[in-house]
Write a protein that binds this DNA or RNA. Structure first.
Lengths: 350, 350
DNA sequence: TTGTACGCGTTATCAT
DNA sequence: ATGATAACGCGTACAA
């Protein structure tokens, strides 16, 4: 019988990639593995000579450190989990783009998952992420409570985006919803609108409430009050915006302007208005929120409140990187600003 | 001097998560680690008694296998890399959604990265993915050559989406561009259009070429020829579609219909038409391709060729799973179909 | 069927 | 400044 070769017999099912190990680099450079590791991580000072020899060996062998082994030995995976709500939406798309850029440049991988606006989906997503031993978490506010987030934050650094949360357990980056909604309302008021309808986000969400409150307050400051008949609730999606606008129209109360709590709902509302034979902005002025990329290409181009979602994502990533490096996180948010395009105009004279 | 405790002294910087190890489960259940491993992976048959004991121990301890260690030991990371071109676009958004669903259900993590339509970005992205030891790759066709992809496919199973490629090195899932473009052209012809402009995708791309060729052939079959003056090139983005339409308009050649190679360009084109004072569909009929979610909410709602991108993503993921399990991949693509909405109509009589 | 022993590639500790 | 050596948590060939 054939005796199988004594060693390496299980090599077959090992990682298929160009398996150049740190070990081999060490041999080639005539140093110990520890030294190579030290150079790779800057953990300690090594002589310029060996430094050069190792760098050369790395080049020649085309060595790439194995993050899996790194993770096992060092307890870090150099990956961070990102919980979005709807991975396919333009809003989260831009956010992911911003996050990816920052994290990738820092050598971290991003694991994007969807929470689907469902508490248990979000929970499951985070559990999966944690079981993958991510080094940190970026969570876009959804249904998960602050208390639940706190528990995760006890295990890894966590940055919450889209909802302010007190306490020091985790960092939260909120949008300036109040200022944004104020800007939108002010713009419509200054154009001369007095009957302004409003599409709010889901009532469970703090930011939706903030936008609504600020909107109402701005109205009140102008001596107007928010007519409950001119308020409808949506779910931050195009179809929900369309339905909300339909409902508003069906109530029969006239309005000359409509403010939707986000661009996607504004786009849905625009279709409802179009279907009802109403022109934007001649018959109804329309304002959105976010300035998602497509806002510029809606017809007519949408006046909206810009809060660069990509930039916010990048800021969240940067802050998380700070947290991971035990640095104080620096977050410098650009305040939202009004972008006036072609969906708003003065109300028609009668 | 104090002698430090001999063991566990470095526990501090280890993974922070509920570190229950397989080892501990084994002890608790009174079996060997290997037995636990076998039960976890179904690698061998174990007695019902121990089976139960281990399951109980797992429950009680709340054990979750560490994928990092698993990866090191078994050479598999249960993660797959997905190379999109623009992570923020609605097209890839829907694709990612489809992929995520399938892969997550199978216990695989998805690593989504952007190729940005740049060959070296794509290459770098794949290198990063490979260095992370992904078990497989799903690549959305971009600038990377088949030859380059073949090299990666030699290391891990690879599914290419969006471009057919001969050979058995990797699986490719193409869209039926020919049928899709034919459907669009046929629709416009049957409405009575004879002067049809066309916005093509980047000329480097096989699918763009296929759509153009099929479009041209359908015209020819109807006794028409494609006027070079009525063709402009875009880059599958809204701005490029807008520019292409502007260019078309600037040439002065009249056309009563416009077919854009994808929805995003159609949406950009719609704005250009709007700006030029042309109404859709009264003055110009407009057809897109893909049926991205927003197509339904453009004004007017866009007639387009539907190829469910989410479903295609899911199919790609399913096929990759097959490949990973050494099963023959099963791919059953739904053929594209025309979705007639409100952006097309018969040309005006003169 | 089950347990033992070793290895996966790297980092951290402890000497030197 | 540098090198042994021992983990990290799990899978698996081999022996029993």
């Amino acid at each position: 019988m054939n005796t199988p070769p004594p060693t390496r017999s299980r090599r077959a099912n090992a990682a298929q990639t160009s398996t150049v190990t740190l070990q081999q680099v060490a041999e080639r450079a005539g140093v110990s593995p520890s030294t190579v590791s030290r150079i790779l991580n800057g953990t300690a000072v090594v002589s310029p000579a060996k430094q050069a020899a190792v760098q050369a060996a790395i080049q020649e062998l085309g060595f790439r450190p194995n993050p899996v082994a790194r993770g096992l030995a060092g307890g870090k995976t150099f990956s961070v989990g990102v919980v979005t709500q709807t991975i396919s939406s333009p809003f989260y798309g831009e956010a992911m783009y911003g996050i990816e850029g920052v994290l990738d440049a820092a050598g971290y991988a991003s694991l994007f998952v969807s929470g689907n606006w469902r508490e248990d989906d979000e929970r499951k997503a985070i559990e999966t992420l944690m079981s993958r031993r991510v080094d940190g978490l970026i969570v876009f506010a959804g249904r998960l409570s602050d208390a639940a987030l706190k528990r995760y934050a006890a295990e890894v650094p966590l940055v919450l985006v889209g909802r302010r949360s007190p306490g020091r357990q985790f960092l939260s980056i909120g949008f300036d919803n109040r200022l944004g909604a104020h800007l939108a309302a002010e713009h419509l008021l200054s154009l001369g609108h007095r009957q302004i309808a409003f599409i709010t986000g889901a009532h469970q969400h703090a930011d939706a409430l903030e936008r609504r409150t600020a909107f109402e307050e701005t109205l009140q400051a102008a001596g107007l009050k928010l007519d409950p008949d001119l308020v409808a609730e949506g779910a931050y999606t195009e179809p929900s915006g369309q339905q909300a606008a339909q409902a508003l129209l069906a109530r029969g109360k006239p309005f000359t302007a409509l403010f939707a709590s986000n661009d996607q709902m504004a786009i849905g509302a625009a279709l409802a208005l179009h279907r009802a034979g109403l022109r934007v902005p001649q018959d109804v002025s329309l304002v959105g929120f976010d300035d998602v990329a497509v806002a510029e290409f809606s017809i007519p181009p949408l006046t909206t409140v810009r809060q660069s979602v990509g930039e916010i994502g990048a800021q969240a990533a940067t802050a998380l990187l700070d947290l991971l490096a035990d640095r104080p996180p620096r977050v410098t948010l650009t305040p939202p600003r009004l972008v006036v395009r072609e969906s708003t105009a003065a109300p028609r004279k009668r």
